[in-house]
Design a protein around this nucleic acid. Structure first.
Length: 478
DNA sequence: AGCGGAATCT
DNA sequence: AGATTCCGCT
């Protein structure tokens, strides 16, 4: 089509002002080249983007079980997708068809019984993106994984469910009456364990939760030398965007080195093979430096947090009826033994953070509002831009409308509303402003080894650190 | 609403 | 490969 779409080159702004607590998706995941076999943004990326942006929570938002989201306004989502892809005739029927293709890929599945509700299989998404993160070897995880054969590192203090609960306060105390870590008592059926996986995607290295055998986790070998999906090799310099993160102003949110990772604390005592490679400061610096690079706006996206909140009302009880398609598929995914796969642990921390902000609170000008649809809007961040929509050229009759929507977001607003649903979380007012680094840091589980560390001294989770962790884990294992 | 086959496009 | 489009079926 001749709509001169440039959206894929004009995606998100270098530094998203709003970060939904949760899984961190490195910038590369948002680049056109990050889509295997495609130079265009993939639908699931787009969905994540929308989910990431508060101003679209009236259109699509995390809801229900972990990873679950509901398309509140199918037509609008389709419209946005159509704009992004320059498909003016896009509609929900077509979009949903595309979503259905993700079922087989296990990137998504349908939440049965809930209209317009789908669920990300983050373990898949993350695995695809973080093939090297070996959760199975994580002391953090091993300590709490009851199904991994007890190979936990000897000197790692066990992490109890209680401890985890404290780390991730929004996590449900239990799913369906069973321990989050136990699979036993659950109802038979694929969902029993699956739920836990869903709840702790970052813990799914163990057999009980993992949704599929390692061989099915992805086309990527565990330790492929340099053959990483989407051309991404976490071991290579530049992985995780060290080299293309935008330079951030002091105090700005989500500097490139902020990469939530619960492993960080567990590994703080381990040797640091990469310590001499790149000073954290420099890493961040460099990341920023390159932003302006070659492709202008594209270059500089920093890792993003994009994860669903832990719903206050955990919909652990899936309404799935019987063993329909999705259920069967999940069954297939079923228990791979310690796949170890790597889940994005990076995500872990993010998970811990998750939810905190989320979406329930203030008012935000959303596309829906624009459309006279009144929906609750959580507080938004100021310069959030919806990435993409700027792309399609004038051909799109919706351009004007779209632009309006972009301009419509704004200002920081007082956090007026409380989370509407009863949630165990502290009131929003007690939370740090999302635009502040403290926002995330304060929510991080305190570092056991440095419990009283002030936020400013909290360990930074830089990409380098992640590399270090990976290496450290290897060493630890050997 | 949701599903999935099939043809087609990019 | 990853949609997009169309469509019949449940």
């Amino acid at each position: 089509m001749d709509c001169n779409c440039v959206s894929d080159l004009l995606l998100t702004p270098p530094v998203p002002a709003l970060w939904t607590p949760g899984i961190a998706f490195p910038d590369w995941a948002y680049k056109p080249e990050s889509s295997p076999g495609s130079r265009q943004i993939q639908l699931w990326h787009f969905i994540l983007e929308l989910l990431q942006k508060e101003e679209y929570q009236g259109v699509i938002a995390w809801q229900g079980d972990y990873g679950e989201f509901v398309i509140k306004d199918p037509d609008e989502v389709a419209r946005l997708w159509g704009i992004r892809k320059c498909k003016p005739h896009m509609n929900y029927d077509k979009l949903s068809r595309a979503l259905r293709y993700y079922y087989n890929k296990r990137i998504l599945h349908k939440t049965k019984g809930k209209r317009f509700t789908y669920k990300f299989n983050f373990s898949k998404v993350v695995l695809v993106n973080y093939p090297l993160l070996d959760m199975a070897s994580s002391p953090f995880l091993l300590a709490q994984n009851h199904f991994n054969g007890g190979s936990a590192a000897p000197d790692c203090s066990p992490v109890t469910p209680e401890a985890l609960q404290s780390l991730f306060p929004r996590l449900p105390e239990s799913g369906r009456g069973g321990s989050l870590f136990e699979r036993g008592g659950g109802p038979p059926g694929p969902d029993g364990d699956k739920l836990r996986l869903d709840t702790f995607p970052f813990l799914s290295s163990g057999a009980p939760c993992y949704s599929k055998p390692p061989s099915l986790l992805g086309p990527y070998p565990r330790n492929p030398p340099f053959d990483y999906p989407w051309g991404f090799n976490p071991y290579l310099p530049g992985a995780f965007s060290l080299n293309n993160c935008p330079k951030l102003p002091p105090g700005s949110l989500y500097p490139s080195h902020f990469y939530p990772n619960p492993l960080q604390t567990s590994l703080s005592q381990l040797p640091n093979p990469f310590s001499s490679i790149l000073p954290p400061g420099e890493a961040a610096e460099r990341g920023g430096g390159q932003t302006g690079g070659t492709n202008g706006t594209v270059g500089g996206q920093s890792a993003r947090l994009c994860i669903p909140p832990y719903p206050s009302t955990l919909a652990l009880n899936r309404t799935d009826v019987g063993s329909g398609g999705a259920g069967e598929r999940e069954g297939v995914e079923g228990n791979g033994p310690s796949s170890g796969l790597g889940l994005g642990l990076g995500l872990g921390l993010g998970l811990g953070l998750g939810g905190v902000t989320l979406g329930n609170g203030g008012e935000r000008q959303s596309p829906l509002e624009r459309r006279s649809v009144v929906k609750q809007d959580p507080e938004s961040d100021s310069e959030l831009e919806i990435t993409d929509l700027s792309d399609c050229s004038s051909e799109n009759e919706n351009d004007a409308d779209f632009i309006v929507s972009k301009e419509g977001r704004l200002n920081s607003r007082p956090q007026t509303a409380e989370a509407k649903s009863a949630t165990p979380l502290p009131p929003l007012s007690s939370l740090p402003h999302p635009g502040s680094p403290r926002h995330l840091k304060n929510l991080l589980p305190s570092n056991p080894s440095t419990p009283s560390l002030p936020p400013s001294l909290s360990p930074s989770l830089s990409m380098v650190d992640r590399h270090r962790e990976t290496e450290a884990l290897k060493l630890a294992r050997s």
